[in-house]
Design a binder for these strands. Structure first.
Lengths: 220, 220
DNA sequence: GTGTGTGAAATTCTTCACAGCG
DNA sequence: CGCTGTGAAGAATTTCACACAC
């Protein structure tokens, strides 16, 4: 390893910073301080600067703040965020088609080139501008198209099978919107985006908050 | 505080466990061990048992595994997850309407009773079965309807204003699907569900994985 | 003076190890 | 004998404090 081992929280924060830098850049902002970034991410400036230490030397210039463009390029290069990743969506219900249309994802570099559904005649499919295939062709299409990322928006009971097919086709990353964990072989990265659990967590915090006068909410 | 301070990771895991217990219950499963739950959440059994210590005594019986129904009720009671929460959606684009239709959320207790959009004539609005109002009425409707939770699915530039109106109306919880942080007064709970950042994090992990032979992926 | 960079301290979280129960 | 429950140990992360640069 040429670089120090990067901790998971650090990767997560830097990804957030990267997204934020993109916004700042498009607004024409040139400079940003660790204090400001910390405030926007809900953490301290120390934390931000500590995270930046994994980017190597000279990310910022002491005294002046960080250069938005330069810092963004550093993160992009360090994490390989510059390239476009070919992706597909499995499960073309309301959520799946909404995501297929989601322009911000495309702007971030996620190029959705195929969709799959077990019911090829779904009404929704006519609304999206990508080729649609039946679910049993997942592995084959993924391999032929060089798809690296799969977006899972199927019902719970179909999630594992869809995952297996994606993995068999060779995807390296899965964004799982199904409120259930899926098993993957070591080496495949899964990010779970589970709005049911998020809803439950939020509800729980509300209960805990009203229960004690502590500043629980500040820490969330 | 009658109970010990509960850490944030613990709340998150228990919310996941709660969701999982719901699935197990509907499948008719009666008993579940900490080992099994740990496996399904991707953590160790020690961690699960430690988390359960915040539930008070007798959550499980030593020797036997945990009773699914009983444990679920304990978590439900401890975190106030039993009740239905009245909610609204701000931003009725593709994503917003997809979420309004999302049945699992309703089953979890989230009762979406109103929708808002700055463009009241949106085509999508005819597809959802809830009353739709113009955005400037958010505070008023939220207050009149006793809405506690707001779901944000507006474009980035409208997120803060929508948030302000929700807070002014009295919501306590916001599920923010906008890839940008929003400011809220202390006491309001925000959960960010940001698929852009998740995409970036996943991409970063893929790069880091290929860079070193460490078992980075196991830790994600 | 304002802001970055980083080793050290403090805190938080996870893992371990083992007592106790069915 | 497998499983729960929990204090103690260990690891990881965050926070602090201060040197250095503009």
């Amino acid at each position: 390893m040429a670089y120090p081992q990067i901790s998971i929280p650090t990767v997560q924060r830097l990804a957030q910073v990267y997204a934020r830098l993109g916004e700042l850049r498009s607004k024409g902002t040139r400079k940003v301080s660790s204090t400001q970034l910390g405030k926007e991410l809900g953490t301290g400036s120390h934390n931000i600067r500590k995270d930046f230490s994994v980017l190597g030397e000279g990310a910022g210039q002491a005294g002046a703040a960080y250069d938005v463009e330069f810092l963004r390029n550093r993160i992009q290069q360090r994490f390989g965020l510059g390239r476009t990743i070919r992706a597909c969506i499995v499960g073309l219900g309301r959520l799946g088609t909404a995501i297929a249309d989601y322009d911000s994802l495309r702007k971030a570099g996620c190029d959705i080139v195929a969709g799959f559904d077990s019911n090829i005649n779904r009404v929704e499919t006519i609304r999206i501008g990508i080729p649609v295939h039946p679910a049993y062709q997942i592995s084959q299409v993924v391999r032929n198209e060089g798809i690296e990322l799969g977006i899972l928006t199927v019902p719970v009971f179909g999630a594992q099978e869809a995952t297996n097919r994606l993995v068999q086709g060779g995807v390296q990353v899965i964004l799982n919107f199904v409120p259930s964990k899926v098993d993957v072989p070591s080496g495949v990265v899964v990010r779970n985006i589970d709005m049911i659990t998020e809803y439950l967590i939020a509800s729980a915090f509300v209960t805990l908050k009203s229960e004690s006068q502590n500043d629980t909410e500040e820490r969330i």
